[in-house]
């Protein structure tokens, strides 16, 4: 359960419906991912910051979307490794 910045606001949270051990957390500091049901977390998404929300495509769980607080949308087709801006 380590790896998330302490006492920081969690703005967004999404879980893979096909494998609920996989979770994503969106924060001002960036995007964090757990693959072991909240035991450990790692920051992913490179320079992604000021995140307000995260979503998973339930039909294709490797397809992940994040939104920044000011409304920029980014998408990853590989479960968070590579990201591209959608607008």
């Amino acid at each position: 359960m380590g790896g998330l910045p302490a006492n920081r606001t969690v703005n967004g949270f999404a879980v893979d419906p096909q494998n609920p051990r996989v979770m994503y957390v969106a924060m001002r500091d960036g995007l964090y991912k757990s693959t072991d049901a909240d035991e450990t977390w790692k920051r992913i998404g490179g320079e992604l910051k000021n995140l307000a929300a995260v979503a998973i495509n339930p039909k294709k769980p490797n397809e992940v979307y994040v939104a920044t607080m000011d409304g920029k949308i980014y998408m990853s087709a590989d479960a968070g490794m590579k990201w591209k801006k959608q607008q």
Partner: peptide, 24 residues
């Protein structure tokens, strides 16, 4: 327009994996 939602609160996709919804 594609941006300028003003303070996004939520993002989610429908069960069909077709439509993204954004709350702001």
């Amino acid at each position: 327009k594609s941006a300028g939602f003003e303070h996004v609160h939520a993002l989610s996709m429908d069960a069909a994996g077709q439509t993204l919804f954004l709350g702001a």
